[in-house]
Design a protein around this nucleic acid. Structure first.
Length: 875
RNA sequence: GCCUCUGUGGCGGAACCGGUAGACGCGGCAGACUCAAAAUCUGUUGUCCGCAAGGACGUGCCCGUUCGAGUCGGGCCAGAGGCACCA
């Protein structure tokens, strides 16, 4: 600052509260972000996972939508026709819970929440095409979903089957797996039962191979998510084979004469010392009819909950059926047949052969019941004659031993040999098994999409004719008693069979809400179509180019959506395999926690923090009482470590909130919300605004003629500007927003220090620089950027301006500074012409005083010159 | 148990293909402005030795490859996440 400057008048601070509302109105009025379905520009579909309308947005939403918005605005500036829609994942249990607790109707509760959250989202200044908005509970949406269901039903992709479900006996309903916590219903706390009951399924297993194999084509997905999906699908190659059964207890019917088991370790059959049936196996149930003890054992097994930890710790228990099994390849040997609690009904055939030496579970079981443990795979470095197990099963590599004709073979060769022989004998066949199960979509709930099926005593499950769709939810329902209101509604379920006209009943199950979210992104392309999707619009917009959301959906939602696109392709509704060509999973927003008296959690807004570092102390504002500062955790209602986006937007502005959540951490990692960080972002808002005002006075007019030449400082500013522009663009393209922010900060400082400088071309360079800066900030702080744009003398919208072009020549410096090392240690640096010859660089490097000193009089043995990078002198 | 990821100043984090480690932000320290404060601006800030010039050390630990390693390879340690009686 020059000392002769007269004191500046107090400046007006930038007022986000007023300005942000203004620009939101302007964008709205001009339909700036409306995306046409027919357009010459290349398309870009940017989507964030749509929210559940809980009533209020949280900081996780702010972070998610801020990221998507930066990308969408940037792509728009880059000349793309950008589709950036928003909607509501609106069916689900919370609305019914609210109905039970406060006697409101789920629809009223949901739509009120949507209105409130929409207002909040609007205050964020997102570049959304609101004309495409819908909620999945809109009749118009679930009408189309019912058509989809029927198309899948007709193709055999939706079917009714029986299967085990999680049944909450208090709430009288099925729960999703994720709603069962430690074996108890998350709401009622009742111990969840496993029940066999009719349920609707989607045949996702039909696509198991395809869903697995296509993962390799998703090169813009995080590796982590692809791995999780691959594990979930869980393909394993093995052998189905049949043991002959014998024994006095064996039922007479021919179907019980053989036991089919599945194994991935056919090489170890000679080590098999028992067979085991699942408690749910049909043979077990058949045997239990005549065996009370077995009956009791089966019941005991069923009582052990589904909680994963319980299972892992549970003791291996078995019940000897008295039957004997013999393997067709092993003459004269029979092994006992047990029912064992660790054999799953849902995988393979529900029966196994146990090889204790090479499977830890079997090892524990055999130890408990005194069964033989014979090693048949010997590690390569061990002697087969003396090899013994070290107190646990061995599942590593080795050679086959103690196995007759398999001895000496490798594991792989032995597997192949056994498979071939079993196939030749017609006693076995190679088979690929999957962990993936068909998707059970029935929910005994009111607030969901009704399954459009009519049950007729004569005709069975009959599709509701398309002209009778939609099957709408009745409004006059009660929630005063547990259970499904659709079942007890006096009239709703009663109807006539569309086939025979006799009295029939409607299906009262509704669909899992994950069905709703499996195709909503396709509906956004044509949200008023009379078909689920308009084929042309879907073809133009899909797949989603960039999808952004939380890692918690890595499997369920993302796998279901991949299945749905294949199902919709099979039913000729569209033609697409993969819904999301680019996926990004962002981290959570965290905050430290505060615990007051009586271990009550306190909101950050109720707490005052003093001091720094280790001396930080927190006090409850209302009482002044000291409070314990707890660990940093994901913002959650239970820990009350929540910061309300409304409060932040009201006091700092949406731009500040967006800037902060983008700036502090890499987007895939968790970001810690700190008051200091937000204040820092707020300072930058004001600083940028002051800078624009300063430069607006001093810089050249908009559109001024470019000077013929620039002084060195003006050139340096121009170089910095264009380099930053290139780096910011590259960072946004790769969603590295924190890096983009850092480059912008750095350039802002350079620009700020250039303002007082006076030089040929500086006024023009200043205008160019500030405009570049405003463009770069635009996607992140769109309101402030519009104001800056206007302040710089434009009456257009920045949102309509193209992204500035990088002047390539400015990215290349004439002189560069490179490091000079002696024996790999940096000793000095060298500033030299960019195109200097290696010999010239070497000579200059060897002449540096620090280099001479470090060489200590010794001759250079070797000098490595990496052009424009580094010089390393080896002595 | 299996699979995956992550480890860099006081803190969040940068670092293209192996080439000046610590950009940028937060915090700290010093200064300017002010009667004072706020706001703002400037400088400084990895550790150790040194008045300084300068030097030594430094990206979880150990080993290796290389003229050169935060980056590549091998072996550990720690933390986070996913799956979990899946035969």
């Amino acid at each position: 600052m020059s000392s002769d400057q007269t004191p500046e008048p107090a400046r007006e601070r930038y007022n986000p509260a007023v300005r942000e509302a203004h620009w939101q109105q302007v964008w709205d009025n001009r339909s700036t972000f409306k995306a046409p379905n027919v357009d010459k520009r290349p398309k870009c579909y940017v989507l964030e996972m749509f929210p559940y309308p809980s009533g209020r947005i949280h900081m996780g939403h702010v972070r998610n939508y801020a990221m998507g918005d930066v990308f969408a605005r940037y792509k728009r500036a880059r000349g793309f026709n950008v589709l950036h829609p928003m909607g509501w994942d609106a069916f689900g249990m919370p609305a019914e819970n609210a109905a039970m607790e406060r006697k409101s109707h789920p629809a009223a509760w949901t739509y009120a929440n949507i209105a409130a959250m929409k207002k909040q989202l609007k205050s964020m200044g997102l570049s959304l095409d609101w004309s495409r908005e819908f909620a999945t509970c809109d009749v118009a949406y679930y009408h189309q979903q019912q058509k989809l269901f029927l198309a899948m039903f007709a193709k055999g992709l939706a079917y009714q089957g029986t299967g085990r479900v999680n049944w909450d006996p208090d709430d009288q309903t099925v729960l999703a797996n994720e709603q069962v916590i430690d074996g108890r219903g998350w709401r009622s706390g009742a111990i969840v039962e496993q029940r066999e009951m009719p349920s609707w399924y989607f045949r996702i297993t039909k696509y198991a191979d395809e869903l697995l194999d296509a993962l390799s084509t998703l090169d813009r997905w995080p590796e982590k998510v692809r791995l999780m999906q691959a594990n979930w699908i869980g393909r394993s190659e093995g052998l189905l084979m049949r043991y002959a059964l014998a024994g006095p207890a064996l039922p007479r019917a021919k179907r019980w004469s053989e036991l089919e088991v599945f194994t991935t370790r056919a090489d170890t059959i000679f080590g098999g010392s028992f067979c085991a049936l699942s408690p749910g196996h049909r043979l077990t149930l058949e045997l239990a009819k005549k065996n009370r003890e077995l009956q009791a054992f089966v019941e005991d097994c069923a009582r052990v909950g589904t909680a994963a930890e319980d299972l892992a710790k549970a003791e291996k228990l078995g019940f000897d059926t008295g039957l004997r099994a013999s393997h067709p390849l092993i003459p004269d040997v029979t092994i006992p047949v047990y029912v064992a609690n660790f054999v799953l009904m849902g995988y393979g055939t529900g029966a196994i052969f146990g090889c204790p030496a090479h499977d830890q579970r079997d090892y524990e079981f055999a130890t408990k019941y005194g069964l033989p443990i014979v090693p048949v795979v010997v590690p390569h470095d061990a002697d087969p004659a003396t090899y013994a197990l070290a107190g646990a099963a061995y599942d590593g590599p080795g050679r086959i031993a103690n196995s007759g004709f398999l001895d000496g073979l490798s594991i792989e060769a032995a597997k192949a040999e056994v498979a071939s022989r079993m196939e030749a004998l017609k006693k076995g066949k190679r088979r690929t098994m999957y962990r993936l199960r068909d998707w059970g979509v029935s929910r005994q709930r009111y607030w969901g999409c009704p399954i459009p099926i009519i049950h007729c005593a004569d005709c069975g499950a009959v599709a509701v004719p398309v002209d009778q769709l939609p099957v709408t939810l009745p409004n006059d329902v009660t929630f005063d008693v547990p259970g499904n209101p659709l079942v007890r509604h006096p009239t709703w379920k009663h109807c006539t069979c569309p086939k025979c006209g006799k009295p029939a009943t409607r299906e009262t199950d509704t669909m899992d809400t994950f069905v709703d979210s499996s195709w909503y992104f396709a509906r956004f392309t044509s949200n008023t179509s009379n078909d689920p999707v308009d084929a042309k619009a879907a073809k133009y917009w899909l797949p989603v180019d960039q999808y952004i959301g939380g890692i918690e959906h890595a499997i369920l939602h993302l796998l279901y959506s991949r299945f749905f696109m294949r199902a919709m392709t099979a039913t000729k509704l569209l033609k697409l395999k993969e819904p999301f060509s680019g996926l990004f999973t962002q981290g959570m927003v965290t905050h430290e926690t505060y615990k007051g008296r009586d271990s009550q959690w306190l909101l950050p807004a109720e707490v005052r923090v003093e001091g720094e570092g280790d001396h930080r102390r927190a006090f409850e504002m209302a009482t002044g009482a000291p409070i314990e500062i707890g660990p940093i955790e994901k913002m959650s209602k239970s820990k009350k470590n929540l910061v309300d986006p409304d409060d932040i937007i009201a006091s700092f502005g949406a731009d500040c909130a967006r800037w902060f959540v983008l700036s502090d951490s890499p987007p895939e990692r968790d970001v810690i919300w700190t008051e200091a960080g937000v204040a820092g972002a707020g300072r930058f808002v004001q600083r940028l605004w002051r800078l624009v005002e300063d430069i607006a006075v001093k810089a050249a007019d908009p559109g001024a003629t470019r000077p013929a030449s620039f002084g060195p400082q003006a050139t340096a500013l121009r170089r910095a500007g264009h380099k930053t522009l290139a780096k910011v663009a590259a960072s946004i393209e790769t969603l590295r927003f924190n890096v983009a922010v850092a480059h912008i900060y750095e350039f802002t400082s350079e620009l700020q220090s250039a303002v007082p400088k006076s030089e040929p071309g500086m006024e023009w360079a200043l205008r160019e620089a500030i405009e570049l800066l405003v463009h770069m900030v635009g996607p992140m702080m769109p309101h402030l950027a519009e104001d800056c744009w206007a302040r710089l003398g434009y009456n257009t919208l920045l949102a309509d301006q193209p992204w500035p072009a990088v002047e390539q020549a400015l990215l290349i410096d004439e002189t560069i500074t490179i490091a000079v090392q002696v024996n790999g240690k940096r000793r000095d640096e060298l500033t030299i012409a960019r195109d200097a010859a290696d010999a010239e660089v070497e000579a200059a490097a060897l002449g540096l005083a620090a280099v001479v000193r470090a060489m200590d009089g010794k001759p250079a043995r070797k000098v490595i010159v990496v052009p424009q990078r580094i010089v390393n002198v080896v002595v």
